[in-house]
């Protein structure tokens, strides 16, 4: 009997805690540590998103564009959240600063680690590259041979594009797989800034 009451007590305790946790809206925006999402949960959701998209597009380019759109929607919201969380009342105005912000702060908030490199293209003045040796987004994805040119990082490229757009650095962002020794999945996000951004950069100097 006593055991029974104890059992029901613990379960009701558990219930209230559960009820309190149900609402996403009431959760503290600033709480990041214990609010991380399981990688498996994300992997299944992303997998479903890809399957959904695949049924509604023609061709690989179309699919990548759609993924980019999905990422864009995430990015616009994410920029808002992350600038609020950082609380340094700072607005990046130079190209390098905003790219560094993406390379470190954004990557850390999204994946728990910094991106592996941030480079400037040697050929074109308006192109920058952010690379990730082991992109978490495509950790479990094996692209079949008939879709070999598809890069699932297009989603990530969309996020980056939205962040740049939202910070007034309009750019075209694409994603490419460029494997190097030991990192077969290494993905590079190629950022091609609009001419007006470079023009403004010149004026600020």
């Amino acid at each position: 009997m006593s055991q029974n009451t104890r059992l029901s007590m613990t379960s009701s305790l558990h219930d209230t805690r559960y009820a309190r946790r149900t609402s996403v809206v009431e959760r503290n925006l600033n709480k990041t540590r214990s609010a991380e999402v399981g990688l498996s949960a994300f992997a299944f959701l992303f997998s479903e998103m890809l399957q959904y998209t695949q049924k509604r597009v023609q061709g690989i380019q179309d699919l990548e564009r759609k993924l980019n759109d999905f990422g864009y929607r995430v990015g616009t919201r994410f920029l808002e959240l992350i600038t609020w969380r950082e609380k340094n009342n700072r607005r990046e105005i130079s190209v390098l600063d905003i790219l560094y912000f993406i390379h470190t702060t954004v990557w850390k908030a999204l994946f728990g680690k910094q991106a592996d490199s941030l480079e400037k293209s040697t050929e074109n003045n308006d192109e920058y590259m952010i690379s990730d040796n082991e992109p978490i987004i495509s950790k479990f994805i094996s692209v079949p041979k008939d879709l070999a040119s598809l890069n699932c990082g297009a989603f990530l490229a969309g996020i980056v594009e939205a962040i740049l757009d939202g910070s007034q650095f309009p750019a075209r962002v694409t994603s490419h797989t460029l494997p190097i020794e030991g990192y077969p999945l290494r993905t590079t996000i190629l950022i091609k800034l609009d001419a007006e951004v470079l023009l403004r950069e010149e004026q600020i100097k």
């Binding site: 299944f44 997998s47 479990f140 994805i141 094996s142 692209v143 879709l147």
Partner: peptide
């Protein structure tokens, strides 16, 4: 379960 079930293809 990781590399087959989580693979969208």
């Amino acid at each position: 379960s990781d590399y087959v079930m989580k693979n969208p293809f």
